[in-house]
Design a protein around this nucleic acid. Sequence first.
DNA 1: GTTCGCACGATTGTCAACAATCAGTTTCCT
DNA 2: AGGAAACTGATTGTTGACAATCGTGCGAAC
Lengths: 235, 235
Amino acid sequence: MSAEKNLTGVRRSRPRGTADGKDKATARDELRTAILAGEYMPGERLVEAQLIERFGVSRFNIRLALQDLAGEGLVEIQRNRGAHVRKISLAETIEITQVRMVLEGLVAAQAADRVTEAEASELDEIGLLMRRAVEAGEFRRYSDLNQRLHGLIRKIGAHATADRLIGTLRAQLARHQFMLSLLPGRPAVSLPQHERIITAIRDRDPAAAETAMREHIASVVEVLRSLEDTPAAHG
Amino acid sequence: MSAEKNLTGVRRSRPRGTADGKDKATARDELRTAILAGEYMPGERLVEAQLIERFGVSRFNIRLALQDLAGEGLVEIQRNRGAHVRKISLAETIEITQVRMVLEGLVAAQAADRVTEAEASELDEIGLLMRRAVEAGEFRRYSDLNQRLHGLIRKIGAHATADRLIGTLRAQLARHQFMLSLLPGRPAVSLPQHERIITAIRDRDPAAAETAMREHIASVVEVLRSLEDTPAAHG
DNA sequence: GTTCGCACGATTGTCAACAATCAGTTTCCT
DNA sequence: AGGAAACTGATTGTTGACAATCGTGCGAAC
């Protein structure tokens, strides 16, 4: 048998399949998940040694992961001072949401151009579930459906460049995002907006889809602006 | 005398500012400039050893610089295969330009909200110079003014988040950008578009400013779409 | 009691050697 | 000859050690 041809190498761990680097990528993803889950609070220091211990990755890869997350705007690296979870001000939250508004508007318009019958049905179904969730007062479920709807629209729009940017922007807002949908009266306002978006895309009306999406997110911006005067809302 | 005092309080050679001390940031900036200047063609391999020799920076910093530029979408790093200048397809160029369209539209709208008298005059002046440049057939000058106009609008709009994204997107298109403004008949088409943008901002009309900016860049998208059928336009 | 300077510990930045991997070529067997 | 396994040179990935830097606590001078 040719068992011996193997003995020169230590076991090569076969970088399986799609193989983006294993270590750096996993470290980055796990750290991002941890930050988004709130395990590290904004402003908190990310000490390399601690991350090494927690994720079991070499310092080199931890460093690369931090570098990547800095590029995504999730952490901030100051020379000789290490990495912190980036703190995002309310003003910046508004800016980011504005950018999301125009990007998701673009994607919605393109989705209206490309939507198939099957996808239209899926949209309708989500719309129905949303209505039921609101009527039943299931806000958490509504929030999930909200994400699913936006995700489906992004899938239909198939705009890789916009998708990537929206993804990083959403990540930056992950914490605030959650807060918003729980504001009193919010679902009652946003449900009809969502339904308008769905209708426009189903009707293959790009302009209407973009307008509806923008109005929807613009109303979020308005809520954020109203918070600018009530500074207690930060925590 | 007390010579030993010196060894702790050693004078830092203050690599602080823009001294010739080559670090990661300078390496990154110089490499980016080189790529944008066309010294490395799309798809060309960026061998670390060569970059070390060219920029006189350690491999470590070269590596970090490449990593950064990968984050900006200028180079692509494949594991164990090194870094290449990222090739941007025509389809992707269209996507990027679409994103630029909505982002610069957003910035233009905000610029119309915030423009001061002095800035309005500056806009008018650029508009005048543009008209003269077109009439005189000075296309290169027109192209420069074009960039200056868009830059001024970004400055007036003061939308940090959108600005940053627009910057990286523009960098990705740097090569094509240049080509576009030299297409026959392009200035004649874009000049009135620019003038409409300027007028709308000067009149403090955000909606009109956004519309004008979007129409302007949409026409660029149309040109790009028309190229999709004439594959010879790639080189 | 306060302030300034200074050494110290903790943490990050950098480097050079080592290991792994890839692309191209050679060799060997059929 | 033809194709696959195996070498070779070049290039990239990773590790551990070392240097630079920052924040802090102690002590001396006033």
